[in-house]
Design a protein around this nucleic acid. Structure first.
Lengths: 354, 354
DNA sequence: GCGGGTCCAGAGATCGATTTCTACACGCCC
DNA sequence: GGGCGTGTAGAAATCGATCTCTGGACCCGC
């Protein structure tokens, strides 16, 4: 019996050979029609196209990727897709990736550093064009060494590590860094709070060892120093970047009888929880206590009162990450790009007179 | 010169042959160490493992996928990752996919039906184990025919189409359907509103042709009929599932002087916008007007007053989608699974006496 | 001592598409 | 009419890992 002469097997999808057989040409010719970069006689081409349609043929992306051609995939690694912060960056990444004809692989790590490594390793296996890691980094040395190792490994394979919203790994490490002015935003917000007369500002949600947290606190402290206002260590509350911590932490702070006239929450989610706690405790916002957040997620508009926060250009970060990584040969000098942040004043910090 | 005898090229990542050469064995042996399913002498194995470590070797997923082995990828198609509704389902999908040792490809369509087709086609090329499409479907025939075609094409290729939150394509179509009791939730909510004494309920955000919308409205209408309350077509406002429509639509409804004592918003996002509009118009919630949403996204807790809404088990939908699709041979009878929904009563519909 | 079994490892085919490299026509000019 | 470009298409090698088939080494018992 002739091999591949009849109809293709029922459980399998068809291959170039099936198409070739049906069109009465060779596999090479089918491939050339597919690629379109090589002259094929008009009549032959249409015969091949018809055969492809009739067999409902689609190329095998793996076979194509194996044959040297780039794999056209961008990997995206986040803690948790559910967080609006990540979701909006994800959107930017996905949009730009689509615009550049790339697919987008999504991986979540649930804040577990070990999973970051596992996931990046998997992305090396997938030969992704770029691996974009989003969110705060851990300060410890082994972690950074490991990321540096990945940066080199990816580079060797012709891929690229991209760090979004985290500090660079050091000189000479082949990685793209897309960051926002984290410290500056915290500085501006703290200044806003203090200069509006709130001299005792609590910081809700310090995460020791997390770069995002450290930078915000640096800005927070710097603003105090700049304005000659001493800040009280007792008003620094350790926690996580979650709504539930915001609620718990705020309740405890109020219960402790601490003296404060403003709360700078580490993120908008934390602020949302804090607002609920204050409401339940009968503390008026902004009359008794001003509340500010960080990130400017959509929910900031919906909490009551509307939340003063620091805006981060999330989607632009995502788009830049993809763009810079894929065209790194065109932008060799902007492989560390920092976007600006700015304070958005809403009702939660407004003075009655304003 | 011996081929592959020296160090691997500097710009390329190493292959099994490189590892084999370094360990002084054949490629087959390296592969067997990798797979672990075939006996390899202990001493040989450790030599190979060391060589892999020294060369920082990772397998080429494409080469592996080409050799028959399943590709271990689940595709996830949504309108927009930014929406909390999708984000939470995405999380369920991602978690379950990770638990099953699968990677997750994310694609967004921005509500464009054409992009759905393009994306699903790409997923066929990628030979994904399952293609999960989330969100309302369009009622028109060509759209459904095309989806049916994809269902068959994926099935032929050993993959699976999964529809989440959308109606089945018909008898005999090889697809997994994971749905929630959309109509029942709307029915329950409408009943809740009417039986608490609000006899004139506005529906904010009808989207003609979208299955999600039609089902909710069906429940809305059925509740009216059941309770013997007539509903007013003038209180049905067409729109989109967005916060900004919620705001606009609500303002216009108030400005029109329409008579209503409750608003059933098509989604929580719509409700959030509506609440802002009502606040700005000086309408008190829930005293003057009760407001309810649909989806139970986290923001429902943060709006003011806290939003009464219909809970959907988002993450469970996502997990079930992956589980049922990958183990469809084990669950041949539950390829159309419907999850329950339930009303969550919060402040936005509460009577003062409650 | 030799057949028979077990254990381990190499050679080579294979997956599907691309990409040389090769070859056959055809038309054209000298 | 023979030589030569040009246009078109096939045969075969290639990518990297896996899988089958084959075969060598070694131990065992009779």
């Amino acid at each position: 019996m002739e091999k591949n002469a009849g109809a293709p097997s029922h459980r399998e999808s068809s291959t170039v050979r099936d198409v070739a057989a049906r069109a009465g040409v060779s596999a090479s010719t089918v491939s050339r029609v597919l690629g379109g970069t090589y002259p094929v006689a008009k009549e032959t081409r249409s015969r091949v196209l018809r055969a492809m349609r009739e067999l409902d043929y689609v190329v095998n992306a793996h076979a194509r990727a194996l044959g040297g051609a780039a794999n056209k995939t961008v990997a995206f690694v986040v803690d948790d897709v559910t967080g609006p912060f990540y979701a909006h960056i994800a959107r930017g990444v996905e949009e730009q990736a689509a615009a550049e004809g790339r697919l987008c692989m999504l991986c979540t790590t649930h804040g577990d550093p070990q999973r970051v490594f596992a996931v990046v390793e998997t992305m090396r296996e997938q030969r992704a064009d770029a691996v974009i890691v989003v969110g705060g980094a851990w300060d410890d040395k082994p972690y950074q060494d490991r990321m540096t190792h990945f940066a080199h490994a990816l580079d060797r394979a012709g891929s690229r590590l991209v760090l979004v919203g985290r500090p660079p790994l050091g000189k000479g490490v082949p990685a793209t860094v897309v960051d926002y002015d984290n410290e500056g935003g915290a500085f501006a917000m703290t200044t806003h709070l203090i200069s509006s007369g709130r001299r005792r500002v609590a910081y809700l949600g310090r995460v020791p060892g997390l770069s995002t947290s450290s930078q915000r606190i640096k800005g927070f402290v710097r603003a105090h120093e700049m304005l000659g206002v001493s800040h009280d260590e007792a008003l620094m509350v350790d926690g996580t970047f979650t709504r539930s911590f915001g609620y718990q932490g705020m309740r405890e702070l109020v219960a402790s009888g601490a003296d404060f006239s403003a709360v700078f929450a580490a993120t908008d989610m934390v602020a949302a929880g804090a607002l609920q706690a204050l409401r339940e405790d009968g503390v008026r916002v902004p009359e008794d206590v001003a509340v500010a957040g960080y990130d400017d997620i959509p929910t900031a508009l919906d909490v009551y009162p509307a939340l003063t926060t620091v805006n981060i250009p999330h989607e632009e970060l995502g788009r830049a990450a993809v763009r810079l990584a894929l065209h790194r040969d065109q932008f060799p000098d902007s492989q560390h790009q920092v976007f600006g942040t700015h304070v958005v004043v809403r009702a939660s910090t407004r003075r009655s007179g304003d």
